[in-house]
């Protein structure tokens, strides 16, 4: 690799809890993202997320160490209940949060008007994938960065970079759903809890595991069988878009949408940086501190290696995909589609 001049990307890391936030900062995160303990963010899981007081302390901790904190207020408030989202925006802005990640047009408009100096990022949940859509959010709400949907190739991201007036943040590692973010009602169809409005995808409260006499495992969401695993087979968490189904034209259980794979773009880091990606995002606010520490540290080393003109050491990341096969997803090329 030639030692070309690359812009140093921001490593944006998940923080499901205050302890995870400190862990991510200590492991080399340039920024951490988190949410409040309610439906205003897309990882509204029990035992996860921050109280306002915890967020305030976390911001102080991160800022003392030169790291930024980004607040996800990235779900869609149902009519009549927007106050909770406005309150989240007000609290975050009041604490001097480095950016608020928004998806809903009404929430973005509120944040832009009420807190004109507050930096806004456009969440992947907004599903903005074209220069026209991204440009609209930049024009109307002063959005400074877009988190891209995981549907573009690296070449397409490079092309997009030339056509939009804001920074690009791209997912590089972690769990990936198959459906366009912010536009999936599969969980709500099966369970009555909405990904967009309640901030939950495949909530644990609606998951069932059943083992039969031969120790075969059936997993269900909201009563629907999502998958079956033979005794000894590695069983995955039941997510509709990663389940196996029967379909005419196929015999046996079929992954109609996607195999249970994890995204790992570590090998594409130099390409992403050349394509104009400003921030590299690691998924996993629901993950353990040990996971966060390992992934963040490995990516810190990899990014620094690329910047120094060395090949990134990425083998340690493979072990972290936790039994899943890894993929470069849509980023690798058009044949993924």
């Amino acid at each position: 690799m030639t030692a070309e001049k690359l812009t140093r990307p921001e490593l944006v890391c998940p923080a499901g809890t205050p302890a995870s936030l400190r862990t991510a900062v200590d492991a080399g995160a340039d920024a951490v993202y988190c949410g409040f303990q309610n439906a205003t963010n897309a990882r509204n899981f029990p035992g996860l997320n921050f109280t306002p007081a915890e967020l305030q302390a976390a911001i102080a901790y991160a800022h003392d160490r030169g790291a930024k904190v980004l607040l996800a207020v990235n779900t869609f408030p149902p009519a009549g209940q927007t106050d909770l989202w406005k309150e989240a925006i007000d609290i975050g802005a009041g604490f001097g949060i480095d950016a608020i990640i928004v998806a809903d047009i009404g929430v973005a408009d509120y944040a832009a008007r009420r807190h004109p100096g507050q930096r806004l990022h456009l969440s992947v949940q907004a599903g903005a994938a074209s220069p026209e859509a991204i440009g609209f959010y930049c024009r109307e709400f002063g959005v400074k960065r877009v988190v891209l949907p995981r549907m573009l190739t690296v070449a397409e991201i490079s092309g997009l970079h030339q056509q939009i007036p804001c920074e690009i943040e791209a997912f590089v590692f972690g769990n990936i759903g198959m459906m366009a973010e912010g536009r999936c009602s599969l969980t709500n169809y099966a369970t009555g809890l909405s990904t967009n409005m309640d901030g939950v995808c495949s909530p644990a409260s609606q998951v069932q595991y059943e083992e039969d006499a031969e120790r075969n495992l059936t997993t269900r969401l909201g009563g629907f069988v999502v998958d079956r695993f033979a005794c000894g087979e590695s069983a995955g968490y039941p997510t509709i878009c990663k389940g196996r189904y029967h379909v005419v034209g196929r015999t046996g259980a079929y992954h109609a949408f996607e195999e249970p794979v994890s995204l790992n773009l570590s090998a594409l880091l130099p390409d992403l940086m050349r394509a104009g990606v400003t921030a590299l995002k690691i998924e996993g606010r629901q993950r353990s501190r040990a996971y966060v520490r390992n992934v963040v540290a490995a990516f810190r080393k990899a990014v620094d290696a690329v910047l120094a003109g060395r090949d990134p050491e990425i083998a340690s990341l493979l072990a972290l995909t936790e039994g899943h096969r890894e993929t470069q997803g849509a980023f690798q090329g058009k044949t993924w589609r």
Binding site: P149, R150, M151, M178, M179, A180, R183, C184, S185, L186, Y189, C241, V247, G249, R250, Y254, A256, F257, E258, A330, K334, T335, W336, R337
Partner: peptide, 20 residues
Amino acid sequence: VPLALSARCYHARLTGRTKD
């Protein structure tokens, strides 16, 4: 009811093809 959209075409996937 439309429930989800994806960048991938599932009809194409089923037949071993891609969106293109």
